[in-house]
Design a protein around this nucleic acid. Structure first.
Length: 370
DNA sequence: AACTTGGTCAACCGCTGGCAG
DNA sequence: TCTGCCAGCGGTTGACCAAGT
């Protein structure tokens, strides 16, 4: 059965012979392809136009880069896939000389398995957690905090990258952080906190020192990016340090007594003994950017929403949500074990760039523009 | 040596959207 | 508005090959 475009023709299928390749190359280089449906006849091939097009685009095109993917290309694929999902053609546009088919095959045969082996869900880029852990509170809290977060649009949800943040007060977190399965490789050059000690603000997120115990539940309203906290830690000095950090890992900042070295080796987020801030701050995406997008389209800042959970004063509220989360299920790729420390004021939360209906960061815009 | 299994990747299939008539 | 053609896309298939038994 041939394609509808050539069902009346006697077409050959299967692998192309060198002679067929030669005919196609000769025809296209001298005449261009014009209408693909007319190519087989003009080139003297017993193929359908669609097959000719595919052969040219995926194999014969002179600007194709052959050979295995470099680490740089691999990172680019992961980064762009995190944003765009399985839009192979769009991903391939960021890899000169690579085709969508090639990228897709590489993803399915290599990257996908690699991510799974590292405990990362290749579809969501989330870390995969286990039901076998003995710390069910973490899962409940994750679920509880997921409920706090603005829910993304369905289409965006599959591509929203999630990272985890961990308690900086956990003695195991440094070890964990240094064993993060792969570099996110979106260096966070700048964390912008134009703030006073009790008020932090960026264009997308505003939170003040006004106490409002209900704010963690306002995620479905237009004001879902506004989160109030009862007090703010003094973090200016740490933020100042962070602004000078260049790392291939996302950045964690703690106002607690954690070693400054954690700044260089941790996932994104801002954590305090009393606060867990979800992907707090904003940062500039300017490394690898020419791999991701055209330079003139590089957003000057990539801003993310913030979720703040004050664990002391809102413990009851969190616990309510935890208790209401009864049907959580987690899948597990189990060669990446987590060792979290129980604490009443520090815990594990999902974290990451996140899209929602009312919030559009530059990188979201980039994703949609692609 | 023969067979099985699993991975890779070129090619195919079916669908969608744009466009012209 | 409808229809048909076409390019392009993502998912899937199957040929081929290498490693294992």
């Amino acid at each position: 059965m041939g394609h509808h475009c050539c069902s009346k023709q006697k077409v050959k299928r299967g692998l192309w012979s060198p002679e067929e390749d030669e005919k196609l190359i000769k025809h296209i280089t001298t005449n261009g392809h014009g209408s693909w449906s007319s190519v087989p006849k003009l080139a003297g091939l017993q193929r359908c136009g669609k097959s000719c097009r595919l052969r040219w685009i995926n194999y014969l095109r002179p600007d194709l880069k052959r050979g295995s993917f470099s680490e740089q290309e691999e990172r680019t694929i992961i980064d762009v896939h995190r944003i765009l999902g399985n839009r192979w053609a769009q991903i391939a546009k960021h890899l000169p000389g690579r085709t969508d088919n090639e990228v897709k095959n590489f993803w399915n045969s290599f990257i996908k398995k690699k991510l799974i082996a590292q405990g990362i869900d290749p579809n969501t880029h989330n870390l995969i957690l286990s039901t076998t852990t003995n710390n069910n509170n973490n899962f409940n809290i994750i679920n509880a905090c997921n409920k706090l977060l603005p829910q993304p649009q369905q289409q965006q949800q599959t591509t929203s990258p999630l990272m985890n943040i961990f308690s900086s007060s956990s003695s195991s977190s440094s070890a964990f952080l240094s064993s993060l399965p792969y570099n996110y490789n979106i260096p966070l050059h700048e964390i912008l906190f134009s703030s006073t000690s009790d008020q932090y603000q960026n264009p997308n997120v505003f939170w003040s020192s006004t106490t409002n115990t209900n704010t963690t539940t306002t995620t479905t309203t237009q004001e879902q990016n506004n989160y109030n906290i009862p007090h703010a830690p003094s973090m200016e000095s740490l933020v100042s340090q962070a602004s000078t950090v260049t790392t291939t890992n996302p950045i964690i900042i703690s106002s607690s007594s954690s070693s400054p070295s954690i700044l260089n080796s941790s996932p994104c987020g801002l954590i305090d003994e009393d606060f867990i801030m979800w992907n707090a701050g904003s940062y500039e995406l300017n490394i690898e950017a020419d791999q991701l997008i055209r330079k003139e389209e590089i957003p000057t800042q990539v801003l993310d929403p913030v979720v703040v959970v004050e664990m002391n004063n809102k413990t009851n509220h969190i616990h309510e949500m935890m208790n209401s989360t009864t049907s959580a299920s987690f899948e597990r790729s189990n060669n990446f074990d987590f060792d979290f420390v129980e604490s009443t004021t520090s815990t594990v939360l999902p974290c990451g760039m996140y899209c929602n209906n009312n919030y559009h960061s530059p990188i979201d815009q980039f994703a949609w523009d692609c």
